[in-house]
């Protein structure tokens, strides 16, 4: 029981430090600026702890980058400016959502391609099954079938 409580406590402790803790360090003139800042730092990946966003990370570098993002936004730079600034230094890797370009086409369209193959194979199998059901029995087949059925009936009787 104590372990469960401890785990819950740890989980909760992690939660409370994520995302919003960093916002208090900065002053924003408007709610809009604040939400823009939040949006950008959540779209950018922390390069030190790679599965965290800039907003959620407490790493030194993440803090430096947050400060840089804040400075740029205070200077009136747009979200796109900030993202371009980051990509020109750290590459597409800083983006959680990879951009659409030839080298990422397999990433974006690959799953749909595989889905299409799946649908095609499924369709083909279904059509085949349907066709095999529709096979008409010839008279000879009917006779054979009747014989087989009567055989099993006899077997059951004995």
């Amino acid at each position: 029981m104590r372990t469960i409580f401890f785990t819950l406590f740890l989980l909760f402790a992690c939660w409370s430090t994520s995302s919003f803790a960093t916002l208090d360090e900065y002053h924003f003139d408007s709610e809009e600026q604040k939400s823009d800042f939040r949006e950008v730092t959540e779209e950018l990946r922390c390069l030190v702890c790679q599965n965290q966003s800039l907003a959620g990370s407490d790493a030194e570098l993440a803090k430096d980058l947050q400060r840089e993002v804040y400075k740029m936004m205070q200077q009136g730079k747009t979200k796109d400016d900030v993202i371009e600034f980051m990509v020109s230094r750290y590459g597409d890797f800083v983006l959680y959502e990879p951009p659409m370009k030839p080298s990422t086409y397999p990433l974006w369209f690959g799953p749909f391609f595989i889905l299409a193959i799946g649908i095609f194979l499924l369709g083909r199998t279904l059509v085949k099954k349907k066709r095999s059901k529709e096979v008409e029995l010839t008279d000879a087949d009917q006779e054979k079938l009747a014989k087989l059925l009567s055989n099993t009936a006899e077997n059951r009787d004995t």
Binding site: L47, V48, E60, L61, D64, L65, E68, R89, Y90
Partner: peptide
Amino acid sequence: FDGRTAIDLGVYG
């Protein structure tokens, strides 16, 4: 001091 040049160089570690 402030890590600004490191950011320009794309340093992450």
